Amino acid sequence: MDSVRKTFDKWAKNGRADLMEKEHGKNAIKILKTISFDKPFLFLDFGCGNGWIVRRISKDPFCKKAVGIDKSKNMIIEANKKKINNNEEYANTDLENFKFNNKFDIIFSMESLYYVDSIELALKKIYKLLKPGGKFFCGTDFYSDNKATAKWAKMMKIQMHLHSKQEWISFFKEAGFETKTKQVKDLKNKKKWKREFGTLFIIGKKPERQSSN
């Protein structure tokens, strides 16, 4: 079992999954509120944890299906325990092996992408999973511009890819995305880095028209 899966299996059992919802929920919801859900859509949360984002999205009247995937079996068990309606679907799988019959309108990921073996390959897979015009919202507190969080990898002793804001932008553009970023700060938080840097969201849009190359 890889160290990332082992760590999150442990967190699912000791209540850390619920803590992550409290830690990241405020900024994640700020971004979700900027998305225009004005027509029927399919939604994927990569690294869904206990399913808190999937549950929220599944209640939207235009949601056809909200899917959550996580490589931690225990996280998916927790997500299924908390399931509130039939629009939710969860799968214990990593991104590389995930398969779905339809393309997604929105893919979301909060504090997950930097755990993958290859960010480049992960972004290629996400690009393929999106419909033309679909968007990927990737949130991370762990980026090199934010010095306070750069020590997380050593503390956790698991694989975490640390990159700068500019490097993240480059990864997205190389995968074919039209790319922009947004810093979501929590100005009333006790932690200085949350007030000054906050969560970096890299937002990639799959072009409406695909290149013939």
Rank of each mutant, 00 (worst) to 15 (best):
D60K: 14
Q183E: 13
D141Q: 12
S72N: 09
A66P: 04
D145W: 12
F171R: 03
S36P: 02
S164R: 08
M156L: 15
K131Q: 05
L123W: 03
K147D: 08
K71S: 14
E88I: 03
K64W: 01
E78D: 05
I169L: 06
G68W: 07
E88K: 14
A66F: 04
I84V: 15
I106K: 12
F100L: 08
I158H: 08
K99T: 15
K147A: 11
N92D: 14
K191S: 04
D2W: 07
G134S: 01
M75W: 03
K26N: 11
E120S: 15
A91W: 05
K30W: 04
P207G: 04
Q166K: 15
G204I: 01
G47W: 03
F177V: 03
E88H: 10
N80F: 09
D141I: 07
V116Q: 13
F8K: 06
T199Q: 13
F104Y: 01
F142K: 00
F104T: 04
S164N: 09
K59Y: 09
F171E: 03
A91N: 09
K185D: 01
K173I: 12
I35C: 13
R16W: 10
I57N: 09
E208C: 00
K135T: 15
Q159G: 00
S170K: 15
K180C: 12
S118F: 05
V116E: 08
N80I: 08
W11D: 01
L19C: 10
N146Y: 02
G139I: 02
S109R: 00
G134P: 12
L42V: 05
R56W: 05
W168H: 14
K205G: 02
L123C: 10
Q159M: 07
I203C: 01
R5P: 05
E23D: 13
V54K: 07
W52K: 06
K182R: 11
I77Q: 09
V116M: 08
N97M: 02
F137M: 11
N85Q: 03
F137P: 04
D117W: 06
R55S: 12
P207V: 04
K71P: 00
K99Y: 13
T140K: 07
K59N: 14
F43V: 05
T199W: 04
S36M: 15
N101C: 08
